[in-house]
Design a protein around this nucleic acid. Structure first.
Length: 194
DNA sequence: TTCAGGATGTACT
DNA sequence: GTACATCCTGAAC
Protein backbone atom coordinates (compact mmCIF):
# COMPACT_ATOMS: atom_id res chain seq x y z
CA UNK A 1 0.00 0.00 0.00
CA UNK A 2 1.13 3.51 -0.75
CA UNK A 3 1.16 6.35 1.78
CA UNK A 4 -1.13 9.18 0.79
CA UNK A 5 0.97 12.23 -0.20
CA UNK A 6 0.56 15.69 1.23
CA UNK A 7 -1.27 16.70 -1.95
CA UNK A 8 -4.16 14.47 -0.90
CA UNK A 9 -4.86 16.76 2.04
CA UNK A 10 -4.16 19.97 0.15
CA UNK A 11 -7.67 20.15 -1.32
CA UNK A 12 -11.20 21.23 -0.52
CA UNK A 13 -12.00 19.85 2.95
CA UNK A 14 -15.36 18.37 1.94
CA UNK A 15 -13.70 16.42 -0.86
CA UNK A 16 -11.02 15.13 1.48
CA UNK A 17 -13.60 14.11 4.08
CA UNK A 18 -15.49 12.08 1.49
CA UNK A 19 -12.37 10.59 -0.07
CA UNK A 20 -11.07 9.45 3.30
CA UNK A 21 -13.82 6.83 3.54
CA UNK A 22 -12.36 3.39 2.90
CA UNK A 23 -8.77 4.58 3.35
CA UNK A 24 -6.46 2.78 5.77
CA UNK A 25 -4.98 4.49 8.79
CA UNK A 26 -1.73 2.99 10.03
CA UNK A 27 -0.33 3.52 13.52
CA UNK A 28 3.11 2.22 14.40
CA UNK A 29 3.82 1.88 18.09
CA UNK A 30 6.49 -0.07 19.95
CA UNK A 31 7.29 -2.15 16.88
CA UNK A 32 3.66 -3.13 16.37
CA UNK A 33 1.47 -2.03 13.49
CA UNK A 34 -2.18 -1.16 13.95
CA UNK A 35 -4.31 -0.76 10.83
CA UNK A 36 -7.90 0.46 10.67
CA UNK A 37 -10.25 1.32 7.83
CA UNK A 38 -12.02 4.66 7.89
CA UNK A 39 -15.82 4.49 7.94
CA UNK A 40 -16.96 7.88 9.24
CA UNK A 41 -15.66 11.46 9.00
CA UNK A 42 -16.74 15.07 9.52
CA UNK A 43 -15.45 18.28 7.93
CA UNK A 44 -14.63 21.44 9.93
CA UNK A 45 -13.88 24.62 7.99
CA UNK A 46 -12.79 27.61 10.05
CA UNK A 47 -13.74 30.37 7.66
CA UNK A 48 -17.49 29.65 7.66
CA UNK A 49 -18.13 27.13 10.41
CA UNK A 50 -19.16 28.07 13.95
CA UNK A 51 -18.50 24.49 15.03
CA UNK A 52 -14.82 24.78 14.11
CA UNK A 53 -12.40 25.71 16.89
CA UNK A 54 -10.80 28.23 14.52
CA UNK A 55 -14.05 29.83 13.40
CA UNK A 56 -13.63 33.29 11.97
CA UNK A 57 -9.85 33.11 11.87
CA UNK A 58 -9.51 32.62 15.60
CA UNK A 59 -5.93 31.87 16.65
CA UNK A 60 -5.06 30.47 20.05
CA UNK A 61 -2.50 27.99 21.33
CA UNK A 62 -4.95 25.18 20.69
CA UNK A 63 -6.13 26.19 17.21
CA UNK A 64 -2.65 26.87 15.89
CA UNK A 65 -2.40 23.32 14.54
CA UNK A 66 -5.45 23.87 12.34
CA UNK A 67 -3.44 26.44 10.37
CA UNK A 68 -0.52 24.04 9.86
CA UNK A 69 0.38 22.50 6.53
CA UNK A 70 -2.01 19.91 5.08
CA UNK A 71 -1.29 16.37 6.22
CA UNK A 72 -0.78 17.32 9.87
CA UNK A 73 -2.52 15.60 12.79
CA UNK A 74 -4.68 17.80 15.01
CA UNK A 75 -5.39 16.06 18.33
CA UNK A 76 -7.22 17.73 21.20
CA UNK A 77 -8.73 16.78 24.55
CA UNK A 78 -12.51 16.85 24.83
CA UNK A 79 -14.76 16.60 27.90
CA UNK A 80 -11.69 16.26 30.07
CA UNK A 81 -11.06 12.62 29.26
CA UNK A 82 -11.20 11.79 25.57
CA UNK A 83 -9.15 12.74 22.55
CA UNK A 84 -10.21 13.46 18.98
CA UNK A 85 -8.01 12.95 15.89
CA UNK A 86 -8.27 15.26 12.89
CA UNK A 87 -6.42 15.49 9.59
CA UNK A 88 -5.50 19.07 8.68
CA UNK A 89 -6.53 20.03 5.13
CA UNK A 90 -6.13 22.93 2.67
CA UNK A 91 -3.03 25.09 2.26
CA UNK A 92 -0.93 26.19 5.23
CA UNK A 93 -2.49 29.25 6.83
CA UNK A 94 -6.05 28.05 6.16
CA UNK A 95 -7.82 26.57 9.19
CA UNK A 96 -9.64 23.39 8.19
CA UNK A 97 -9.58 19.70 9.07
CA UNK A 98 -11.43 16.41 8.94
CA UNK A 99 -12.48 14.74 12.19
CA UNK A 100 -12.13 10.96 12.32
CA UNK A 101 -15.35 9.65 13.84
CA UNK A 102 -15.31 5.93 13.10
CA UNK A 103 -13.17 3.07 11.84
CA UNK A 104 -13.11 -0.72 11.70
CA UNK A 105 -10.19 -2.92 12.71
CA UNK A 106 -8.04 -4.42 9.96
CA UNK A 107 -4.79 -5.45 11.66
CA UNK A 108 -3.78 -5.60 15.30
CA UNK A 109 -7.30 -6.23 16.57
CA UNK A 110 -6.10 -7.73 19.81
CA UNK A 111 -3.84 -4.80 20.64
CA UNK A 112 -6.64 -2.39 19.76
CA UNK A 113 -8.91 -4.25 22.18
CA UNK A 114 -6.27 -4.15 24.89
CA UNK A 115 -5.72 -0.42 24.45
CA UNK A 116 -9.43 0.24 24.67
CA UNK A 117 -10.70 -2.26 27.23
CA UNK A 118 -7.59 -3.79 28.74
CA UNK A 119 -8.70 -7.18 27.47
CA UNK A 120 -8.14 -9.34 24.42
CA UNK A 121 -10.72 -9.45 21.64
CA UNK A 122 -11.76 -12.91 22.78
CA UNK A 123 -12.70 -11.55 26.18
CA UNK A 124 -14.94 -8.77 24.90
CA UNK A 125 -18.71 -8.90 25.26
CA UNK A 126 -20.98 -8.74 22.22
CA UNK A 127 -21.86 -5.18 23.20
CA UNK A 128 -18.20 -4.16 23.37
CA UNK A 129 -17.50 -5.69 19.97
CA UNK A 130 -20.47 -4.00 18.37
CA UNK A 131 -19.36 -0.60 19.71
CA UNK A 132 -15.66 -1.16 19.28
CA UNK A 133 -14.40 1.79 17.20
CA UNK A 134 -17.54 3.74 16.31
CA UNK A 135 -16.68 7.08 17.90
CA UNK A 136 -13.82 9.61 17.85
CA UNK A 137 -12.82 9.10 21.48
CA UNK A 138 -12.85 5.33 21.05
CA UNK A 139 -10.59 5.49 18.01
CA UNK A 140 -7.96 7.57 19.81
CA UNK A 141 -8.05 5.33 22.85
CA UNK A 142 -7.56 2.20 20.74
CA UNK A 143 -4.77 3.79 18.70
CA UNK A 144 -3.14 5.21 21.84
CA UNK A 145 -3.22 8.79 20.57
CA UNK A 146 -3.15 11.83 22.86
CA UNK A 147 -2.26 15.50 22.69
CA UNK A 148 1.36 14.38 22.61
CA UNK A 149 0.67 13.55 18.95
CA UNK A 150 -0.79 16.95 18.11
CA UNK A 151 1.08 18.46 15.16
CA UNK A 152 2.46 15.11 13.97
CA UNK A 153 3.29 14.92 10.25
CA UNK A 154 1.03 12.37 8.53
CA UNK A 155 3.56 11.74 5.79
CA UNK A 156 5.98 10.25 8.33
CA UNK A 157 6.28 6.70 9.62
CA UNK A 158 4.43 6.84 12.94
CA UNK A 159 0.92 7.71 11.84
CA UNK A 160 -0.14 7.83 8.19
CA UNK A 161 -2.84 6.98 5.69
CA UNK A 162 -2.82 4.53 2.80
CA UNK A 163 -5.00 4.17 -0.23
CA UNK A 164 -7.54 1.41 0.14
CA UNK A 165 -9.23 1.24 -3.24
CA UNK A 166 -12.81 2.22 -3.90
CA UNK A 167 -15.06 1.59 -0.90
CA UNK A 168 -17.98 -0.79 -1.34
CA UNK A 169 -21.54 0.41 -1.07
CA UNK A 170 -23.11 3.79 -0.68
CA UNK A 171 -21.62 6.94 0.82
CA UNK A 172 -24.07 8.57 3.23
CA UNK A 173 -24.14 12.30 3.90
CA UNK A 174 -25.76 14.08 6.84
CA UNK A 175 -25.56 16.51 9.72
CA UNK A 176 -22.66 16.45 12.14
CA UNK A 177 -22.86 15.10 15.68
CA UNK A 178 -22.58 16.95 18.97
CA UNK A 179 -22.42 20.55 17.77
CA UNK A 180 -25.85 21.84 18.82
CA UNK A 181 -24.20 25.03 20.04
CA UNK A 182 -23.05 26.01 16.54
CA UNK A 183 -26.07 27.95 15.25
CA UNK A 184 -26.75 27.61 11.54
CA UNK A 185 -23.76 25.28 11.14
CA UNK A 186 -25.73 22.56 12.93
CA UNK A 187 -27.45 21.73 9.65
CA UNK A 188 -24.41 21.68 7.36
CA UNK A 189 -24.31 18.24 5.66
CA UNK A 190 -20.64 17.73 6.44
CA UNK A 191 -20.67 14.24 7.90
CA UNK A 192 -19.83 11.28 5.69
CA UNK A 193 -20.07 7.56 6.41
CA UNK A 194 -20.19 4.17 4.71
C1' DT B 1 -33.02 -0.73 22.38
C1' DT B 2 -33.27 3.82 24.24
C1' DC B 3 -32.43 7.43 27.71
C1' DA B 4 -30.67 10.37 31.54
C1' DG B 5 -26.92 11.52 34.21
C1' DG B 6 -22.24 11.84 35.53
C1' DA B 7 -17.13 11.73 34.87
C1' DT B 8 -13.30 14.91 34.16
C1' DG B 9 -9.73 18.80 32.93
C1' DT B 10 -8.52 22.30 29.67
C1' DA B 11 -9.49 26.41 27.02
C1' DC B 12 -11.37 30.50 26.96
C1' DT B 13 -14.65 34.40 28.73
C1' DG C 1 -17.13 30.15 36.05
C1' DT C 2 -18.83 27.89 31.74
C1' DA C 3 -18.66 25.09 27.84
C1' DC C 4 -17.10 21.23 25.58
C1' DA C 5 -16.47 17.88 17.78
C1' DT C 6 -17.69 11.98 24.19
C1' DC C 7 -18.47 7.65 26.45
C1' DC C 8 -20.13 4.56 30.01
C1' DT C 9 -23.45 2.89 33.26
C1' DG C 10 -27.75 1.61 34.97
C1' DA C 11 -32.69 1.68 34.69
C1' DA C 12 -36.90 1.45 32.02
C1' DC C 13 -39.22 -0.41 28.28
Amino acid sequence: MKTLPRAFYDRDTLEVARDLLGKYLVRRIDGAELVVRITETEAYIGAVDRACHAYGGRRTARTETLYAKPGTAYVYLIYGMYHCLNFVTEPEGTAAAVLLRGVEAVEGTDLLARNRFGQSWEQLTAYQRKNFLNGPGKVCKALSLTRAHNGLDLTGGELFLCDGGTPQGEIHVGKRIGIDYAGEAVDFPWRFWL
